[in-house]
Nucleic acid binder design. Sequence first.
DNA 1: TTCACTATATACACTAAGCACATAGTAACA
DNA 2: TGTTACTATGTGCTTAGTGTATATAGTGAA
Lengths: 109, 109
Amino acid sequence: MHNRSGLLEACLLILLKENKSYGYNLMNDLHKFGFEEDSLNISVIYRNLRSMEKRGLITSSWAESDQGPRKRVYEITADGEQDLKNWIWMLKNRKSQIETIIEKYENLK
Amino acid sequence: MHNRSGLLEACLLILLKENKSYGYNLMNDLHKFGFEEDSLNISVIYRNLRSMEKRGLITSSWAESDQGPRKRVYEITADGEQDLKNWIWMLKNRKSQIETIIEKYENLK
DNA sequence: TTCACTATATACACTAAGCACATAGTAACA
DNA sequence: TGTTACTATGTGCTTAGTGTATATAGTGAA
């Protein structure tokens, strides 16, 4: 398996655990998590959502919009909740790993 | 450019800032940084080192070994020191981003 | 001479991302 | 009426990076 960072997937799952939502909206909400303006690419969001649905972490349904075209609205599943739990565990490891790196660097200078 | 995590590159540069070293040895030293046993692949180490040399972050020279074949010994350059500094800055951002994610997750449960 | 360890490197297949582009609905305004 | 802006979803192409396997080769012990 590829060693993906999991940052994006975890953020999307947290947002969908809060409220059901759709790609274009999730894109904007992701700024809450400290993603920089130009570091997010909408096509990456859409492809990740489709991939997550394929893996059973979320489900989608179409919703009419009052302004603009239809929205594909996503909801988190039980598998998605478990996946999120795993990502959080991994991110805690990642965090302590980064702390180790920074500490070793500061001690070197 | 691809958005690499920078974890590996930062760790290698820190180790090379401490002491000049070579791929096979760096591989073992990386465990100090909390990399799990099977998450590290030696071919990835070698390829990263060659890539870093190509970008001028490190330089290499051959050294005879007392046991086994010759070693390609790497040293960090001034550009490498600057690159490491940048990675540390990025990792500090990454760390706070992960903290935000974990915090939001804990508040949801 | 066979095995284990040390040491470096490449070939092939696959995944994921960046970027560009296609499609399409609504709404304002000239 | 047409043009622009915003909303909304998605695919095609190219490239970067990883995992796995494999090739090569030196040393030392059984």
